[in-house]
């Protein structure tokens, strides 16, 4: 799961809304794990971003409660019960790509679960998605 062709983005938010439908069963431009930031004048492609599934995730290293744990194949996993009481939000600060965002309602990070819906509904193949073997 990665962003391969950001220049093709038209800024339709199909990925964003697909993500919020999948993760939260709602349509919501803020409750998403994929982000589209427009160049309003339209001269440049919007900035599309999402989790890069780092092998050495800064967010997990920064987590003071061990709620975020690195996964061997890259990326992170979250234990909500350990995360919920925390108000430091160190993880959000730590992410170099600024793609770890808190859920407005639950105040815990929104994690991409690699469902591929963003890629599925992108009309311009901005994303690249494949079923990883063995997961």
């Amino acid at each position: 799961m990665e962003i391969r062709n950001p220049a093709r983005c038209i800024g339709c938010y199909s990925c964003v809304f697909a993500c919020s439908r999948h993760l939260f069963n709602v349509v919501d431009p803020t409750r998403t794990a994929v982000f589209v930031e427009l160049d309003r004048k339209g001269g440049r492609a919007p900035k599309v971003s999402m989790c890069r599934f780092c092998k050495e995730p800064e967010c997990a290293y920064a987590c003071p409660h061990g709620a975020l744990q690195p996964l061997p194949e890259g990326g992170i996993t979250l234990t909500p019960s350990k995360c919920a009481p925390c108000t430091t939000y160190d993880c959000v600060e730590a992410c170099q790509y600024k793609v770890l965002v808190l859920d407005r309602e639950k105040k815990i990070p929104i994690l991409c679960d690699r469902c591929g819906d963003c890629a599925k509904y992108c009309p311009h193949n901005v994303f690249w998605y494949t079923e990883a073997p063995g997961i």
Binding site: I10, C12, Y13, S14, G42, G43, P123
Partner: peptide, 19 residues
């Protein structure tokens, strides 16, 4: 022609931008 832009949640992108 330079780029196309679109409305929220519309994958069509009928708006063509010229420079």
């Amino acid at each position: 022609f330079r780029r196309k832009v679109t409305c929220t949640n519309c994958p069509v992108a009928c708006i063509h931008l010229g420079a």
